[in-house]
Design a protein around this nucleic acid. Structure first.
Length: 877
RNA sequence: GCGGACGUGGCGGAAUGGUAUACGCAGCAGACUUAAAAUCUGCGGCCCACAAGGCAUGAGGGUUCGAUUCCCUCCGUCCGCACCA
């Protein structure tokens, strides 16, 4: 067999078929072995898989196959995040029904995934657009509604007047809709919200328990939740200056210590007091209208100037009835954070300082940094937000910031006005409730009915699912559900009178917030989950996906699991015990003279290093080799997984994805390295063949003694085994692959030794058999097809996919004598070989006889000799 | 602006307080071949003709017997958040 080339194209489908026929990756829920749940983020069925999928699913498959070999009952399912806008875009642009488009894509991508040789349990496949899935989602919506986890409220949205649809912030570009180009308006719509903010503190606290999540993701979630501790303070207003004799304004501040530096108050343009004042002041009304015209798009907010308008209202300082502050409406105050009103202390807040400098209100520093003279400490253009002592602050003078905050809070909490304390400590979060209403067709219908008499009525559970109608038209903008002739019309479940269905559908993030739970038992029809299954399988032991989901998907899933817990559909709070975020697949770009890009397949590369040149295959025209970018359609730097699998085989593609780059970092796809991976596939095939030849003469019984060469091989094999196991556990795939290559090199050396000697000694033949039986299982998780073929060639009748992980022989990892590096003043100068358990004194004596040491010491005694057991010796001269 | 990560040969990278440059890619030289491909062997941080030696992990400083690893300052690259009071 050793002189035949390994033919991946013939071999891979053969093993895939066999795995399939024998159903060896179908997982049973009642298997008594310990469980291991490995999950990769399921794909959106966009049409074809891309290299990012190949990388993601290869990593998951390595873990799944390894854990299976380690004796775990492994759950490794796959499904489709199948609702979403691209299906509707296809319907509009190509007149294909979203359902047809989606299911065709699923079929194509499933075939592609199968060609990768992934050890997936396809019997548990889920598509979120299937009524058998979203039925349960609707059921949970109703349960959550009953449990008070969902509410309906007004919210501002980006409205595209041409497409007649709501746009996400990222779909608004320079204030215009990304598709229509129409100027986006702010509209108030009544929408459904999941009350995720009720769980802000719990979601924050529990991050500490997620010790197998990347620190980066945990930090991003902490920042996103954005907890702050502050004080609500009720300022009195001069009723003579207010529109309707209002007497009070409540503000939120995290810096109550700076109250004596206050120079103004500011209201959000959406604040009720601003609205009231605008009714009596046309100029103010115009100012507010102008503020509201600006969208929520980030670019606009960034560039917008800080603008204010003096309402004429005057507020009274809480510590001085004779001290009044002007009340402005300002465009930078958000209505939905705190109370929508603030007091401004310009000396210690840059934004407030910019504001007073524009309107000439001045500033007073109240915190003086250590070592500064308060008399000369002035603020002009840069606010001071550091530590220091209170100054110019009456009873607070001399206190630290923390003490001053506490003193202000205590004093104002103690005062009451109208039976309520003047101030109250409050914790605020940046995290907002999760608006899930989408004015779209291709999503999960929200199961409620609007009745003129009964109001919002939930669809009775027995009437679920509320299915999407299939006879819809995309010939006009807007939501097809809204204008469907009959779907919307329904009798009120309570009073029986004609009523209307909710035509909004759910955000697709809802679909992906519980699919991992459904995978634990996707067959049960009368409930979203089977409690014994969901509780025994969850949490997911290893979740793998892109960093782009670090916040939204992962935070929503954490919330949703809590909600399922409350509603009785799951018994835990944290769905993902281990998380890994893999890097992207990137590729260099090729720019043609006309500025457009060429694909890697259209380009031929010549030369190396600085001499590398790229020319178009078709015309010979030179193209510029550009920067390395994320593979994308727009840069045309994509490589099609199908092409790679066709040319090199899935194992080569899988090996490449794990090589060289650490898995959390981006990997650069290059033709040279794919060939390198392919060469290694061939080399392993040859090596296993050669090893098999050598091993033919091996005795059945393990020899009592091993010669030096055989022992060296055995040590290499067991050393590699121990290290590879550890590296897979830590997901250090690139290091793991280097270990396998090193072991293969050691095996090649041994084969070389045998062929130089003419024949194998019995001990070497036995050791070679052992080495081959270790090598194949080691690379099986990465290259399963090649491993099956090698395993069969070695004469095994079992499948490697079902074989146990080899046992390490610990004694082989311990050396009798060890060679320690010898440093002189921290630089390596020599080696010394000593018995493993040699005493310090003996090692020291041995070291002092070395020529290099004698020379360095020039006859003098060393100042110190440091012996680190099993590691190193350092002589200080 | 706030927060975080990273910086090692020509390139991807290894080593998380103990032999810096494992493993691979590219390169060079050689073997096999009529030739090529494939394969195999050898060489690859810099300075110095060699050796000895010295210098090298973005730059500078510190801690340590010993620092790529820990600490401080700076430079560069990337990422997240951002009128959040």
């Amino acid at each position: 067999m050793s002189n035949e080339r390994y033919n991946a194209r013939e071999t891979e489908p053969r093993w895939q078929k066999l795995w399939d026929e024998r159903g060896i990756f179908a997982t049973k829920n009642d298997d008594p072995r310990p469980k291991y749940y490995v999950l990769e983020m399921f794909p959106y069925p966009s049409g074809r898989i891309h290299m990012g999928h190949v990388r993601n699913y290869t990593m998951g498959d390595v873990v799944a196959r390894y854990k299976r070999a380690m004796g775990f009952n492994v759950l490794h399912p796959m499904g489709w995040d199948a609702f979403g806008m691209p299906a509707e875009n296809a319907a509009i642009e190509r007149k294909v029904h979203p359902k047809t488009w989606t299911y065709e894509n699923i079929a194509t991508m499933k075939k592609q995934l199968k060609s990768m040789g992934l050890s997936l349990d396809w019997a548990r496949e889920i598509a979120t657009c299937d009524p058998s899935y979203y039925k349960h989602q609707q059921r949970m919506f109703l349960d959550f509604l009953k449990a008070g986890l969902i509410e309906r409220k007004q919210s501002k949205v980006n409205w595209d007047p041409v497409d007649q649809t709501v746009l996400a912030n990222e779909q608004v570009i320079d204030g215009r809709g990304w598709r229509s180009g129409a100027e986006v308006e702010q509209r108030e719509l009544t929408q459904w919200f999941f009350r995720i903010s009720d769980y802000a503190q719990d979601l924050l606290d529990s991050i500490d328990t997620l010790d197998r999540w990347p620190d980066k993701v945990r930090l991003m979630q902490r920042n996103w939740i954005g907890r702050s501790e502050g004080l609500l303070v009720r300022f009195m207003l001069d009723p003579k200056t207010t529109p309707n004799s209002e007497s009070e304004l409540e503000i939120y501040t995290t810096r109550p210590d700076t109250l004596f530096g206050a120079k103004f108050m500011a209201l959000s343009p959406d604040h009720p007091l601003a609205a009231a004042a605008a009714k009596k002041n046309q100029k103010l009304a115009a100012f507010i209208a102008e503020c509201k015209k600006h969208g929520t798009a980030q670019e606009i907010i960034d560039k917008a100037e800080k603008l204010g308008f003096d309402t004429g209202i005057r507020a009274v300082h809480p510590f001085d009835p004779n001290w009044t502050l002007p009340v402005y409406v300002a465009n930078f105050i958000l209505m939905d954070y705190g109370t929508g009103a603030i007091f401004g202390c310009p000396a210690h807040d840059q934004r407030d300082l910019d504001f007073v400098n524009k309107y000439g209100l001045g500033n007073v520093p109240v915190v003086c940094p250590e070592g500064q003279d308060p008399k000369t400490f002035v603020i002009t253009d840069t606010a001071y937000d550091g530590d220091g002592r209170m100054v110019n602050s009456r009873f607070l003078d001399g206190m630290t910031i923390a003490d001053a905050k506490d003193a202000v809070a205590k004093r104002l909490e103690g005062e009451t006005r109208g039976n309520r304390p003047v101030a109250q400590r409050q914790v605020n979060f940046r995290l907002r409730d999760w608006g899930i209403s989408r004015q779209r067709y291709w999503g999960c219908p929200i199961p409620v009915i609007h009745c003129d008499d009964c109001g919002v009525v939930p669809v009775p559970v027995k009437n679920l699912p509320v299915t999407l109608p299939e006879d819809i038209e995309f010939d006009r903008p807007g939501n097809p559900l809204d204008r469907h002739p009959t779907w919307k019309n329904v009798a009120c479940p309570q009073c029986g009178k004609p009523a209307r269905r909710e035509t909004d559908t759910m955000d697709t993030f809802v679909d992906s917030s519980w699919y991992f739970a459904r995978f634990t038992n996707p067959w049960i029809e009368n409930a979203p989950t089977e409690r014994k299954d969901v509780d025994s399988w969850l949490p997911v032991d290893q979740y793998i996906g892109g960093i782009e989901h670090a916040i939204l998907h992962l935070l929503y899933s954490r919330f949703f699991t809590r909600a399922m817990n409350v509603a009785g559909h799951a018994g835990l709070k944290e769905p993902f015990a281990g998380l890994f975020t893999q890097g992207m697949v990137v590729h260099e770009t090729y720019r043609k003279t006309d500025g457009t890009f060429a694909t890697p397949a259209e380009v031929k590369i010549d030369g190396a290093g600085d001499q590398r040149r790229a020319t178009l295959l078709a015309t010979g025209e030179e193209v510029e080799i550009g920067s390395i970018e994320k593979m994308s359609k727009s840069k045309r730097n994509t490589v099609d997984p199908d092409d790679i699998i066709e040319t090199y085989g899935a194992d080569t593609a899988r090996w490449f994805m794990l090589s060289d780059s650490p898995p959390e970092r981006d990997v650069i796809w290059t033709e040279e390295r794919v060939q390198g991976a392919s060469r290694f596939v061939q080399r392993l095939w040859r090596l296993v063949g050669e090893a098999h030849e050598v091993a033919k003469s091996a005795p059945k019984e393990r020899p009592a003694e091993f010669g030096a060469a055989a022992l060296k091989l055995r040590k290499a094999a067991h050393g590699a085994l121990a290290r590879v196991s550890g590296d897979i556990e830590k997901l250090h795939f690139n290091v793991c692959l280097a270990q396998i290559r090193e072991f293969a090199n050691a095996m090649s050396d041994a084969v070389e030794t045998v062929s130089a000697a003419g024949q194998a000694t019995p001990d070497m033949a036995w050791a070679m058999r052992e080495a081959a039986d270790i090598l194949v299982p080691l690379f099986h998780p990465m290259m399963p097809h090649l491993a099956e073929e090698c395993w069969a060639a070695l004469g095994h009748k079992t499948l490697i996919a079902q074989a146990p992980w080899p046992q390490v022989e610990g004694a082989l990892l311990v050396e009798d004598t060890i060679t320690l590096p010898v440093q002189i003043n921290g630089k390596k100068r020599a080696d010394v070989t000593v018995p493993r358990d040699a005493a310090h004194a003996d090692i020291e004596a041995a070291v002092l006889t070395l020529d290099a040491v004698k020379k360095a010491l020039e006859g003098k005694a060393p100042k110190k000799v440091i012996v680190v057991p099993q590691r190193i010796v350092n002589v200080v001269a």
